[in-house]
Design a protein around this nucleic acid. Structure first.
Lengths: 241, 241
DNA sequence: ATACCTTTACGTCAAAAGTACGTAAAGAAG
DNA sequence: CTTCTTTACGTACTTTTGACGTAAAGGTAT
């Protein structure tokens, strides 16, 4: 017996009509705060179960635009750095019965197709500018440290791991400049690199490499209020943004 | 007025029922022959129009398996090196009217959805082992040199460019060993690298780098019948395959 | 056969990049 | 004013990369 007024039922009916079946988007939204790399997770209504934000692609909508929309709705940000990184297309990506039981939704209301292929995007956002916003399926939206993420619904732990691997690869090629505020200090950038890479770096060598790359410009101000010697502020040169 | 006996109509009816709508797979099959990097293309029936091999994903089939199937059917190979490299998801990826006109198929028979999102895979295959096989929509299947590909149907020229970019990135990280026969000489490997990268390499430095990496083992035989000094044969060590 | 040419299979050397570690100046705390 | 931590820069050594040298192998022209 289906409750046609249940918000999930209404949502999935709408999705069924307007969106592409069997296909979804999952977003790994990375932020950096208090020297930790974090991801934005959602807690499903009336449960203690968490998942990544996700959504569906409208029939006439570009996939990139759909990803933009999904991330924008959770963060409130409109200028986003988004990177498509992998398609998760296994016929049996995760234990469906288990997952739908954990969401505490009546299974027949949400199972709108037998399986879902998910396109993974990661976003790099400035932590302080984000307003974490749950959707109508979730009670809570907040940051979790990347190395302390709970056991998630679907195969979302795996998706986060693959996203982190892609991010680590990316950081070797080009400096990553969307996770910090516009101005920052070299030591702050070093903490970011260290948490993404997962190992410590030598401050002297990091300084040499990053300044030597020519991607940054030093401002005349220094960061005030630090307990020690005040570090200079830097910003990425325009062509590196 | 639709001709329900037209093979394209029958195929798309079957696809409509058994496969996932709006979603397809395109395969860029790379081979290496006569010092040239080549891709396998299909010529559509009764036309001079070419495209990449592609296909659809069955409702309960893993995406990787579907890609495997598509490439296998065109090449006859069953052990394939396949790499998913990008999703082409623009709402308006290509000029649909133009493309369907060029295929010389009655448009309403083949337009089974408004747009298609395509998952791009590239395959690295041993040229000599491939038996190029057209399908029921195409008259001809053959190799084209990568730098002399004609104007293709759909957005397939773009897909090839993105695939080549991904391959170039991959070759910087790890040696590529699926495009050559099991045994090969260092100069042959160098020609492969040169055609993938698109610029010449210094033979002395290439030798040093590739032998120094420890990925190869030298056999006692040399390549006979060369016009000059007979080069040693090498093969990839097991753990690099 | 022998001179000649091309290619292979190494080697040499210098520049550049990466890694380890030294240290003076700045700023806070006792 | 001493002590401690951190920044900002420096020095020295090692590894990697890039330019180029060369002897041996194998064919071709005479």
């Amino acid at each position: 017996m289906i409750d046609y007024n249940h918000p999930a039922v209404r949502y999935y009916q709408e999705v069924s009509e307007q969106c592409i079946h069997y296909l979804s988007i999952d977003g790994v939204i990375f932020g950096f705060h208090e020297n930790q790399l974090k991801v934005l997770l959602l807690r499903w209504k009336n449960t203690t179960e968490w998942s990544l934000p996700g959504g569906f692609i409208r029939k006439a909508e570009s996939v990139d635009v759909a990803a933009q929309r999904v991330v924008q709705e959770r963060t409130g940000l409109d200028k986003l750095y988004l990177q498509q990184f992998h398609v998760f297309g296994e016929a049996n990506r995760y234990d469906q019965a288990d997952t739908w039981a954990r969401t505490k939704l009546p299974i027949q209301t949400v199972k709108w197709s037998e399986r879902t292929i998910s396109i993974g995007y990661y976003a790099l956002v400035e932590h302080s500018k984000v307003v974490p916003t749950p959707d109508f399926m979730t009670d809570e939206c907040c940051w979790w440290p990347i190395d302390n993420v709970p056991s998630l619904l679907f195969d979302h732990n795996n998706i986060i791991n693959v996203a982190l691997g892609s991010l680590r690869k990316q950081i070797e090629d080009q400096p990553i400049n969307h996770l910090l505020p516009e101005t920052f200090t070299i030591p702050e950038l070093q903490r970011l690199y260290e948490t993404i890479l997962g190992y410590p770096l030598d401050a002297r060598n990091f300084y040499k490499k990053i300044v030597g790359s020519g991607a940054l410009e030093r401002l005349s101000e220094r960061r005030a209020g630090t307990p020690h010697k005040a570090p200079y502020l830097y910003r990425f040169k325009a062509k590196h943004l």
